[in-house]
């Protein structure tokens, strides 16, 4: 243990360590929304939520002569499947159509610290309008309270 590199804690160059910390905050800073997203998730009571997996994606398809793009994503959990289709509206916001395996399921589209809830109809249909583009995720609350809520990963729309 007589290696010259084994400097005791007290001798650590605190200035150099501070420079390293500051450098990494420039090089690879945490996303600005990280804290709020975590706090929001905690406040939603999504404890025990199962994280759904992204099972299918169809990339945005540009239609000729139009600026409208569509984007289809499917999430799967052990008990539920959620398909999401987004269409850009004239004002640049999104119309989001959803289909979930079952009626009466509350589904929220989460954007930062905002939650907009919709309840699936008898055919499992969901609709949100004028949703701002950005990083979105979905939270599903099954009709049976004994079943676990489901959270999807964040997807950039």
């Amino acid at each position: 243990m007589s290696n010259a590199a084994d400097s005791p804690l007290e001798n650590l160059d605190a200035g150099l360590m501070d420079s390293i910390a500051a450098l990494y905050d420039v090089v690879d800073p945490p996303p600005p929304s990280l804290d709020d997203d975590v706090i929001f998730a905690l406040s939603l009571g999504v404890l025990d939520a199962e994280i759904a997996t992204l099972t299918e994606e169809v990339m945005p398809a540009m239609r000729s002569g139009e600026t409208e793009t569509t984007n289809t994503v499917t999430f799967t959990s052990s008990a539920l499947q959620l398909m999401i289709r987004t269409v850009e509206e004239d004002d640049g916001t999104l119309r989001i159509d959803g289909w979930v395996t079952g009626g009466g399921i509350d589904v929220a589209v989460l954007s930062g610290a905002n939650a907009r809830w919709s309840t699936s109809d008898a055919h499992g249909r969901l609709l949100w309008r004028n949703v701002a583009r950005g990083a979105l995720r979905f939270l599903l609350r099954p009709a049976d309270p004994a079943e676990r809520p489901v959270m999807t990963p964040v997807i950039e729309f």
């Binding site: 996303p31 990280l34 997203d37 975590v38 998730a41 905690l42 999504v46 404890l47 025990d48 939520a49 994280i51 990963p153 964040v154």
Partner: peptide
């Protein structure tokens, strides 16, 4: 980055639980 965000969020949820 996206995975890091998810992992951190999952970790906090687990901590509270």
């Amino acid at each position: 980055r996206a995975d890091a965000e998810d992992v951190i969020q999952t970790t906090w949820l687990t901590l509270v639980k």
